[in-house]
Design a protein around this nucleic acid. Structure first.
Length: 236
DNA sequence: CGCCAGGCCGTGT
DNA sequence: ACACGGCATGGC
């Protein structure tokens, strides 16, 4: 039966099942340590993962993928190492601010940071320079193991093109929270685990990279059966 | 070459 | 509250 004409929660569940069937488990985040997840979460802001990999390779060569190695870098050295992934004049001090917070209040330990309750922890992250809602939630989920949904530009486009949210999809804070709520409402309480949200966001990125970039490439998309009659509703 | 990338911040309404 | 420009570099 067609998923069309059903409520957005059902359709989002259908999307999850369809994507899992099409792509399989994604085993995210692509990193060797929680600290590396944090670095990647900052570096990938409005930046292709390909470029992030170049910066991470530079950091690895400098021995700076661990807190100890990273702490030893000056902000100027850091800026040069992460230059390939762009916005380095912003991202270098932002990362140093995270490290500084971790050292001063959590003995340099991500585990101690992760021990805070989710909501205060999220507020804490959002208060950091260079951390918005998506970066905060990515760190919460993929580095700290908290069960929160992660919304991103791909999910925003998917929801927009499929008419799950009223177009044009807002790119502001309220729009982000609406996507998070959409995800929370779609799944049962017993599915609201870190493992599940982990997989859901990873699948959204997988289909996004393949079919939901700015140029519409809905042809061959596993989710195409759910598109409104006449094609995607909203491209940008 | 021009457009875009796994956002966020500062400023102006 | 919301829109909008700026931010840096590299891939395609």
């Amino acid at each position: 039966m067609s998923p069309r004409r059903r409520d957005s929660a059902s359709r989002l569940r259908w999307m999850h099942d369809r994507l899992l069937q099409a792509y399989g488990p994604q085993a995210w985040w692509p990193a060797q340590s929680s600290f590396e997840v944090v670095l990647g979460a900052y570096l990938t802001q409005n930046t292709s993962w390909k470029a992030v990999e170049r910066s991470l390779a530079n950091l690895a060569a400098a021995g700076a993928l661990s807190p100890d190695g990273f702490r030893a870098l000056s902000v100027d050295e850091l800026r040069e190492l992460i230059r390939p992934s762009g916005f380095a004049t912003r991202k270098a001090p932002a990362l140093k601010a995270f490290m500084s917070m971790l050292d001063k209040e959590f003995e340099g330990s991500l585990n101690e940071l992760a021990a805070l309750p989710t909501e205060p922890l999220r507020m804490r992250l959002l208060g950091l320079f260079g951390v918005g809602p998506e970066t905060a939630d990515a760190i919460l989920l993929y580095a700290l193991g908290h069960a929160v949904p992660v919304a991103d530009e791909y999910l925003r486009r998917i929801a927009g093109r499929h008419g799950l949210i009223k177009p044009p999809p807002a790119k502001n804070r309220a729009g982000y929270e609406a996507l998070v709520q959409l995800t929370r409402n779609a799944f049962d309480a017993d599915q609201e685990t870190a493992q599940f949200f982990n997989e859901f966001h990873a699948l959204a990125v997988a289909v996004g990279k393949a079919h939901c970039r700015k140029k519409a490439v809905c042809d061959g998309c596993p989710l195409a059966a759910d598109l409104p009659p006449g094609g995607p509703r909203q491209i940008g």
